[in-house]
Amino acid sequence: MPIDKATVAKIARLARIRVPEAEQERLAGELSNILGWVEQLAEVDTADVRPMTSVVDAVPPMRPDEVTDGGRRDEILANSPNVARGFFTVPKVVE
């Protein structure tokens, strides 16, 4: 599935990554190559194979429902360029 320039521009916009137009053609080629390789892998019949999600037979760890965190507002807000009255603030987004 070859990727064209317009698709590169769209994905870049969705991902909020600035990709200058001059680079879009090159990226389209690279991404097409990657997808081509994945398509080649997909030719292998894996109908009876369970997807491998880990190299060891692991189950996801779970935690008991206990409050063990929070109450660290200063740390949470520390990296934010704009803060007011304990909130993050951003340029107004109104629907």
């Binding site: 935690r63 429902d65 206990e66 409050v67 063990t68 965190d69 929070g70 109450g71 660290r72 507002r73 740390e75 949470i76 807000l77 009255r85 304990g86 909130f87 993050f88």
Partner: peptide
């Protein structure tokens, strides 16, 4: 639940802003 889906921060309604937030 008392704590969040993927973190140990509390879920109580009406707390001071950003006081029930984990990293």
């Amino acid at each position: 639940t008392k704590s969040k889906l993927f973190s140990g921060a509390a879920t109580d309604f009406g707390a001071e802003p950003n006081t029930q937030v984990s990293l």
